[in-house]
Simulated assay, not measured.
Amino acid sequence: MKYTVEITIDLPRNEFLKILDNPENMKHWQRGLVSYELLSNQPTKEGAQMNLKYKMGKRELEMVETIIKRNLPEELHTTYDTKGVHNIQKNYFKEVEGKTKWISESEFQFSGFGMKLMGFLMPGAFKKQSIKYLEDFKAYAEHNTSVLSL
């Protein structure tokens, strides 16, 4: 399953990237994030990994993020792996008239019958979640509105 979402953030790209590239800020725009752990000595290099733990309702989810391409300020590509799901994220950042256009391409690869069925029956839920993350990032970056205070 593949889809693309995008949003424009009312910040110059260099300011946008300072917020996006700081893992301490993730808790302010990634709902359900409980903790993260850097697994690499050089966390910003290609191949670097981070373990992420989320709580979504009663469900706990743990995944490993891997940086596969880091060509800032233009692009950042990562993968996210958890049981039954391999997610490839290709993020592009374009500066347009002092603002930043964030284009996020997602590809989900499912393994196991349950995850394949969920991907088939609920593709809109994945896209909706991606859009929510972008909107929450925008609120945090532009207005310092954290999901922790909601």
Score class of each variant (00 low, 15 high):
Met1Ser: 10
Val5Cys: 09
Ile7Val: 15
Thr8Tyr: 03
Ile9Ser: 02
Leu11Asp: 01
Leu11Gly: 01
Leu11Gln: 10
Pro12Ile: 08
Pro12Met: 06
Pro12Tyr: 05
Arg13Phe: 12
Glu15Cys: 05
Glu15Thr: 07
Leu17Ala: 10
Lys18Ile: 02
Ile19Pro: 14
Leu20Ile: 06
Asp21Gln: 06
Asp21Val: 02
Pro23Cys: 06
Met26Asn: 11
Trp29Cys: 01
Arg31Ala: 14
Tyr36Asn: 02
Glu37His: 03
Glu37Thr: 13
Asn41Ile: 03
Gln42Cys: 07
Gln42Met: 09
Gly47Val: 12
Ala48Gly: 13
Gln49Glu: 13
Gln49Leu: 05
Gln49Tyr: 05
Met50Ile: 08
Asn51Ala: 13
Asn51Tyr: 00
Asn51Trp: 00
Asn51Thr: 00
Leu52Ala: 04
Lys53Met: 05
Lys53Gln: 10
Tyr54Pro: 00
Lys58Thr: 11
Arg59Ser: 11
Glu60Tyr: 06
Leu61Asn: 02
Leu61Asp: 01
Leu61Arg: 05
Glu62Phe: 01
Met63Ile: 01
Met63Lys: 01
Val64Ser: 02
Glu65Cys: 02
Thr66Tyr: 04
Thr66Gly: 12
Ile68Ser: 03
Lys69Asp: 04
Arg70Ser: 15
Glu74Phe: 09
Glu75Gly: 10
Leu76Trp: 11
His77Ser: 02
Thr78His: 01
Thr79Gly: 07
Asp81Leu: 04
Thr82Asn: 09
Thr82Asp: 07
Lys83Thr: 13
Lys83Cys: 02
Lys83Met: 12
Lys83Trp: 05
Gly84Cys: 10
Val85Gly: 04
Gln89Lys: 03
Gln89Trp: 03
Asn91Arg: 02
Phe93Glu: 00
Phe93Asn: 00
Lys94Leu: 08
Val96Arg: 06
Val96Gln: 10
Gly98Met: 10
Lys99Arg: 14
Lys99His: 09
Lys99Ile: 01
Lys101Glu: 14
Lys101Trp: 01
Ile103Lys: 05
Ile103Glu: 05
Glu107Val: 00
Glu107Ala: 01
Phe108Lys: 04
Gly112Val: 03
Gly112Ser: 08
Phe113Gly: 13
Phe113Arg: 07
Phe113Tyr: 12
Phe113Ser: 13
Met115Gln: 11
Lys116Met: 15
Gly119Asn: 07
Gly119Leu: 10
Phe120Ser: 13
Leu121Cys: 13
Leu121Trp: 07
Pro123Arg: 04
Ala125Phe: 10
Gln129Ser: 15
Ile131Lys: 10
Leu134Ser: 11
Glu135Gln: 15
Asp136Val: 02
Phe137Ile: 01
Lys138Asn: 04
Ala139Glu: 15
Tyr140Met: 12
Tyr140Pro: 02
Ala141Cys: 14
Glu142Met: 13
Glu142Val: 13
Asn144Val: 06
Thr145Trp: 08
Ser146Gly: 12
Val147Glu: 07
Ser149Met: 12
